[in-house]
Computed example of a mutant assay.
Amino acid sequence: MDNNLCSTKKHIHVTCAIIERDGLVLATKRSAAMSMPNKWEFPGGKIDPGETAEECLRRELYEELGIGARIGPSLPTSTHQYPTFTITLHPFVCTIEEGEIVLHEHAALLWLQPSELHSLDWAEADVSVVAAYVSTSGRTF
Rank of each mutant, 00 (worst) to 15 (best):
A53W: 12
L65W: 01
G68R: 09
I87G: 04
S119L: 15
V129Q: 09
E100S: 12
V14S: 10
I47C: 13
L109Y: 08
E64Q: 09
Y82V: 02
F85A: 09
R70T: 11
D126E: 08
L112N: 12
L57H: 00
E124Y: 13
E124G: 06
Y82Q: 11
S115L: 01
E55W: 04
V130H: 07
M36P: 00
E20D: 02
P76A: 00
R21Q: 15
I71Y: 02
G50M: 13
L103V: 07
L75Q: 05
G50I: 10
I87S: 12
V127Q: 15
F92D: 00
S115Q: 13
L61K: 00
S119W: 05
N38E: 14
K10T: 11
F92P: 04
G138L: 00
T52E: 08
Y133N: 02
Q113I: 01
K9V: 06
D22S: 11
A132S: 14
E98G: 01
R30H: 12
E100A: 05
E55G: 03
I19C: 11
F85S: 13
E20Q: 09
E98P: 02
E55Q: 14
V102C: 10
E100T: 14
A107G: 06
V127N: 13
D121M: 12
T52N: 05
E124T: 12
V25G: 01
Q113A: 14
L109M: 14
T15E: 02
V127Y: 13
H104L: 02
A123P: 00
G50A: 11
H90F: 09
V134Q: 14
F85Y: 15
Q113S: 09
N38M: 15
Y82L: 09
V130N: 07
G72P: 07
G45P: 03
Q81W: 03
I18N: 01
F92I: 06
H13T: 12
L117P: 06
H106T: 10
L24C: 06
I87M: 14
V134Y: 04
I12W: 13
S74T: 06
R58C: 08
I19A: 12
P91R: 02
Q81T: 08
